[in-house]
């Protein structure tokens, strides 16, 4: 486990994961990303980092699930993760849409209320 023993692809993976982790860190620090959503990205970054640092882990895992070509196992895992993440995003969007609808309706109702109150005001003057 010393740097000289890393392959090119491992360096690439390490760099990539560090970019993810650092980006997430700064985004959360500047409040551009909510902590809630940062968790999943931190986990993905850590996953890529660990897999890049310890190649044997991936080989072991691919043997375990019966995949002969280790990178395939890696891609499958990442794609599965991406699907879950997208599902999570769809849930968030649905939630936002429902909130947005309720707010829009409320704004409309309040506008009418304001107009009515203004009219009452004028009449009483």
């Amino acid at each position: 486990m010393f740097p000289g023993s890393f392959d090119k692809i491992q360096w690439l993976g390490i760099t990539f994961s560090l970019i993810i982790l650092l980006s997430v860190f700064f985004l959360v620090r500047e409040r551009l990303l909510k902590e809630k959503y940062s968790l999943i990205w931190l986990l993905i970054g850590l996953f890529v980092l660990i897999v890049s640092l310890f190649r044997d882990l991936l080989d072991g895992f691919s043997h375990l699930i019966g995949v002969y070509y280790a990178p395939s196992a890696f891609f499958s895992l990442l794609i599965a993760g991406a699907y879950l993440l997208l599902l999570n995003m769809s849930v968030s969007i649905s939630h936002l849409k429902a909130q947005n609808k309720a707010l829009t309706q409320e704004v409309g109702l309040l506008r009418l209320k304001v107009e009515e109150l203004q009219q009452e005001d004028k009449q009483s003057e």
Partner: peptide, 14 residues
């Protein structure tokens, strides 16, 4: 006649 102007288009349901 009372009129509610919705600030965004919600569709018939909304």
């Amino acid at each position: 006649v009372k009129v509610i102007d919705l600030p965004c288009n919600l569709g018939i349901g909304g």
